[in-house]
């Protein structure tokens, strides 16, 4: 699962959704893999206004903690989202974003809700959000 997708996922438990702490989910014991994906600048630029930048910063910081060995290094993101014009004119930022959002995959590990603490397993790049009956 691409890190991009984490920007659109939250806890599946109904009562957690009203709390802002349920987003983003926190990766735990994350194993990452890097893919070779063709850069699609147009898609990235168009996606920019749909991203939750603060959540993206959180995710990228958590996923690249020293415990997670990542051969490509830690792509640094600016504190506030770039404007569309800035992104279009900044090749390095575009490449960093592409690498982070499109090429970095969460392969194994867990996604943890900051409210209820439930851990969703991620196996072979596929997260499982089916809830045990007591959480439905």
């Amino acid at each position: 699962m691409k890190l991009l997708t984490l920007n659109f996922l939250t806890c599946a438990v109904k009562t957690c959704k009203s709390s802002s702490d349920s987003f983003p989910l926190h990766p735990k014991d994350a194993e990452l893999a890097s893919d070779d994906v063709e850069v699609n600048p147009e898609l990235l630029v168009n996606l920019l206004p749909r991203l939750d930048w603060k959540a993206l910063k959180t995710t990228s910081a958590e996923v690249f903690l020293p415990s997670c060995i990542y051969p490509l290094g830690f792509p640094q993101l600016p504190d506030s989202p770039p404007t569309i014009e800035q992104l279009q004119s900044d090749d390095k930022l575009l490449k960093d974003l592409h690498s982070l959002l499109m090429e970095t995959n969460l392969m194994e590990g867990k996604l943890v809700c900051g409210v209820c603490g439930h851990e969703y397993a991620v196996r072979e790049g596929i997260p499982n959000f089916l809830l045990p009956s007591h959480l439905v």
Partner: peptide
Amino acid sequence: SSGAAIATEVLVADGLSLPFRERA
């Protein structure tokens, strides 16, 4: 570049307990 399609992003979930950020 014609751009690459994204079709890898899938997850297991129940339709009555979806894990998607609301209104996004």
